[in-house]
């Protein structure tokens, strides 16, 4: 059982996961941010692998990707940074990014190195479900690594159930038809959608992402599903306080909790 599965075994509600782009705002910011997040009581962290062409991301995460690439963040550098991270950090860690950088790194080596660093899950939004099942699932399972899939309001019940069957971490519930950082109202449409997902009684827990930006939006998501993921709002907050990252992280999390 990996750390994601253990987390959801003991905690079902109000799960807070934070997304941060590796190498942002500075090349060596990540370990500091991870420590501050764990100390603040965050349940899980998604570490973004920067990519030059992040088609599902809004301006804030695009910017963080560009800064990180400019800072020199690469997968070899990221794995070097994470090599001893498990001596300090015990919450689940997930790598999230677009397929091309891991492909160029060598997908098998990417998985091996992630596992060696103590990574628990992978999110690659542009990796097709069937390709995962045919080519990679066995390796993920052998290494106790969870692959995490996205669903959206347009994903049919049948497809959600298929995705649930192939998942063993959590389901990433994209709140609405938008890129990251989009303005989401969390009105009736979203609530109906969250209820629909809840009523499917999936085997995997479900976390809401995209548009979660503060306590109010977090609470709505957590009321319907197991918790939520915050990316853009966190990145903007860090960007605004580059010289006092540790305190900025704590302020941000306190405001949500």
């Amino acid at each position: 059982m990996n750390r994601i599965q253990k987390l959801f075994q003991k905690k079902k509600d109000n799960i807070l996961s934070i997304f941060i782009t590796a190498g942002f705002p500075n090349i060596d910011s990540l370990p500091t941010i991870l420590e501050a997040l764990e100390e603040s009581g965050v349940d899980m962290v998604e570490i973004g692998i920067p990519f030059s062409d992040p088609t599902a991301d809004g301006p804030a995460i695009q910017y963080s990707n560009n800064v990180a690439i400019h800072n020199g963040m690469t997968l070899p550098h990221l794995f070097a940074q994470l090599k001893d991270i498990r001596k300090k950090i015990s919450i689940p860690l997930v790598l999230m990014g677009y397929l091309n950088p891991p492909m160029q790194y060598g997908f098998d080596k990417f998985i091996d190195d992630a596992v060696a660093c103590g990574i628990d899950g992978i999110i690659l939004p542009d990796l097709p479900l069937d390709e995962y099942v045919i080519s990679y699932q066995e390796k993920f399972n052998k290494n106790g690594l969870s692959n995490i899939f996205l669903i959206t309001p347009q994903t049919s019940d049948l497809r959600i159930q298929t995705i649930d069957k192939e998942s063993n971490g959590f389901i990433y519930v994209v709140s609405t038809n938008t890129i990251t950082g989009g303005k989401v109202d969390f009105e009736d449409t979203q609530k109906e959608y969250f209820s629909r997902v809840k009523n499917l009684q999936l085997n995997n827990p479900a976390l809401v992402g995209f548009g979660i930006r503060d306590k109010a939006t977090f609470d709505i998501a957590a009321k319907y599903l197991n918790g939520a993921i915050i990316g853009t709002a966190f990145i903007k907050h860090i960007e605004a306080h580059p010289t006092r990252i540790k305190d900025a992280v704590k302020e941000f999390i306190e405001a949500i909790r």
Binding site: T55, F149, Q154
Partner: peptide
Amino acid sequence: GGAYIPEMLHQ
């Protein structure tokens, strides 16, 4: 080729 797209474009 193929279709390497995020779930948002799947439908």
